[in-house]
Design a protein around this nucleic acid. Sequence first.
DNA 1: TTCCATTTTGGCACTCCGCGACATTATTGT
DNA 2: ACAATAATGTCGCGGAGTGCCAAAATGGAA
Lengths: 201, 201
Amino acid sequence: MTDRPSLRGRPAATTHAEIEQAAFRLFAEYGFEATTLDMIAVELGISRRTVARYYPSKNDIAWGRFDETLVSFKEMLDAMPQDLPLWQAVQRGVLAFNAVPAAEEPFLRRRMRLILGTPALQAHSTLRYVEWRTVVAEFVARRRGVPVGDLGVQTIANASLSIAMSAYEAWLDDPGTPLAELLDEAMARLRGYLAVTGDPD
Amino acid sequence: MTDRPSLRGRPAATTHAEIEQAAFRLFAEYGFEATTLDMIAVELGISRRTVARYYPSKNDIAWGRFDETLVSFKEMLDAMPQDLPLWQAVQRGVLAFNAVPAAEEPFLRRRMRLILGTPALQAHSTLRYVEWRTVVAEFVARRRGVPVGDLGVQTIANASLSIAMSAYEAWLDDPGTPLAELLDEAMARLRGYLAVTGDPD
DNA sequence: TTCCATTTTGGCACTCCGCGACATTATTGT
DNA sequence: ACAATAATGTCGCGGAGTGCCAAAATGGAA
């Protein structure tokens, strides 16, 4: 089931990709809640126990191999030039994080629509967001030479996720506009909100 | 179980407050996950079914009567003077939202510590945050005369929660500093982060 | 070829949450 | 005394998650 450097032992009956494919087909037809692990298992011709072994929980099927993409996100941030302004480094990281081959984009959209549209998955996603924010917080803290627990660092990490997710949801609704533009707009709006001017709004 | 304008019928065997009291006692002793509904029921001398009826889910016991405080949050925002800058209105709302009698503060702290320290509750909280953000988004949209779906509105609502939660967590760790100050600092740090200057950080 | 080591699968059983159904109990009003 | 009301308690089910262990399927060594 996991990476198998050794070639001995019984071969795996399925793969993460295969399970996700079957699962998403069923989710689309019956909805996430109404789809049981048994149904997925039957669809694949394997046992429920095996399906359950491939993911920590049913919720996690929706996110797929998120942990791997998170590692690359971290590496991308670390590779950013030091003279690049912090907010730009984060923004570029977000863009690279969400860049996928054009052929895979429809699947990504379907996946994210499912997650953002299903309460149980919305809730579960928080745990993923925590990891994401931790990566950003550690990056910001290192660049600034302050502890990760610092209020400023935590606020920036939190707000970065807010900006990214707001732009991302807008991108899901309107595929025409590139994500980069939406990120810029979201940041600009936030600047306007935070700016202390005579204008009440 | 709910408000009973009528005085007929069998009297309720317990109350939300009573359940939460027993539950938190058990959570403190055994942890949230290890505490079952049966244990809470036994503690109160009632049946599991009755405990379950008082809350949509076990997770919801931790949040208590959040929906009621959310209504007052909404009303507070609506009552803010029109000439008050938007960000100040939201900030005051947040402060009022979290203001409790000094005697209750320890219980609030315990409650929030439990929620923020338990993964399952952290995840479930997302659903509450959605409601919170919706209230802010509707307020901002109304003040600005734009649809709630607007990218700027959504970003501001998201970021407001980020600021509030960052400050709130800092407040939990350091009870000495008043929440108002932490909110100010969080906002100031975010302004600095978003500000476009020559300085890379 | 035969057996052994390895690795995954599959089956079983259990706990817990959540929920629907329905009888039971305890109260008020007539 | 009896009807009406409203919450409780009991029962049973479906589904997720998990530990345990035997069975199956492969590669490698004797």
